[in-house]
């Protein structure tokens, strides 16, 4: 392996306890320079806690945390110079206008790029004169996004950034993520919407109950996933007898559905070839199935 540039975010065996409750339990996470990294997990998995630790807003109970090679808890101010952040639960000052909040937050970071600010306000169709009190959730989200993105940063930490955005604004958001990516910035965005991750991210880390269960590029992860088959003219009993390697066999209309591991595809196809099937539909492995697989495992069910 070539050494390459050091990772922007490097977390190993991270543990965070809140009283007796363990929020993070030995989390590992590495985000390389210039990468758009998806941080995927259900509600309460520990995504926001991780981001807050990366910002030095809360302290790790144990484990190593490095952002730009530094411990963020030891010197948060220095780390924050190169970070733009959008919190998961955007709470702003009700009696300030949207424009004033954008100026406040960028002013504290050293000032906005004015042409970029104009562009973002226009793209997100925000009325910056309205008081925060009168904004909808989606409009408050836009204010936080504009404030984060109108000054270039080396690292963007975005906690469920597209929550509350309509599909058109979501497209605007994705365009601006592509822009900062082409500028060479690193992005870590937490999410539980798979479409978002599939469209944006180079790499993904999946987190469940405070532990990373899977990490890699989308291609690598798809390898781990199963291909979905729908076969007509075959009963569930036939399928089970014929294909002992497949998973989740169930009757669907006049046919049968099942999933097959990537390594078993050749065997499944040759077996189906001799079975005289009436119809066949094969779906590529989706992140959805990968995702669900990890969470179904919780209940001991196998997909």
């Amino acid at each position: 392996m070539n050494p390459g540039p050091p990772p922007v975010v490097e977390v190993s065996r991270l543990v965070k306890d809140f009283g007796s409750a363990r929020a993070l339990n030995g989390l590992d996470l590495t985000v390389g320079e210039g990468e758009v990294h998806g941080f995927l997990g259900p509600n309460g998995a520990g995504k926001s806690t991780t981001l807050r630790i990366l910002l030095g807003l809360i302290r790790a109970t144990s484990g190593a945390v490095k952002v730009f090679g530094q411990d963020p808890w030891a010197d948060p101010v220095r780390t924050h110079r190169d970070i733009a952040y959008v919190p998961g639960d955007v709470s702003l000052w009700p009696n300030l206008s949207g424009g004033e909040v954008i100026d406040l937050l960028t002013g504290l970071r050293g000032g906005a790029d004015q042409s970029l600010r104009r562009q973002l306000v226009e793209d997100f169709e925000l009325d910056p004169r309205k008081k925060i009190r009168t904004y909808s959730k989606g409009n408050r989200q836009k204010v936080a996004l504009i404030a984060a993105m109108c000054r270039p940063a080396r690292l963007y930490l975005l906690d469920e950034p597209s929550a509350g955005l309509d599909p058109i604004m979501d497209a605007v958001f994705r365009r601006h993520i592509q822009r900062v990516r082409s500028d060479g910035a690193t992005v870590l965005l937490s999410c539980h919407i798979l479409g978002e991750v599939e469209q944006l991210c180079d790499r993904v880390t999946i987190i469940r109950t405070g532990t990373a269960v899977e990490s890699g590029s989308l291609k690598e992860l798809r390898h781990l996933s199963r291909t979905h088959f729908t076969v007509l003219g075959l009963s569930a009993q036939d399928a089970l007898a014929l294909l002992p390697v497949v998973h989740g066999v169930r009757t669907a209309g006049t046919g049968v559905e099942f999933d097959a591991d990537a390594g078993d595809l050749a065997a499944v196809l040759s077996a189906l070839g001799g079975a005289g099937v009436a119809g066949l539909a094969v779906a590529p492995p989706s992140l959805e199935s990968l995702f669900l697989r990890h969470y179904r495992d919780l209940n001991g069910q196998v997909l």
């Binding site: 009696n95 300030l96 004169r129 009168t134």
Partner: peptide, 8 residues
């Protein structure tokens, strides 16, 4: 609540 200023 009224309308606020566009810039700070």
């Amino acid at each position: 609540a009224g309308v606020g200023k566009e810039r700070a």
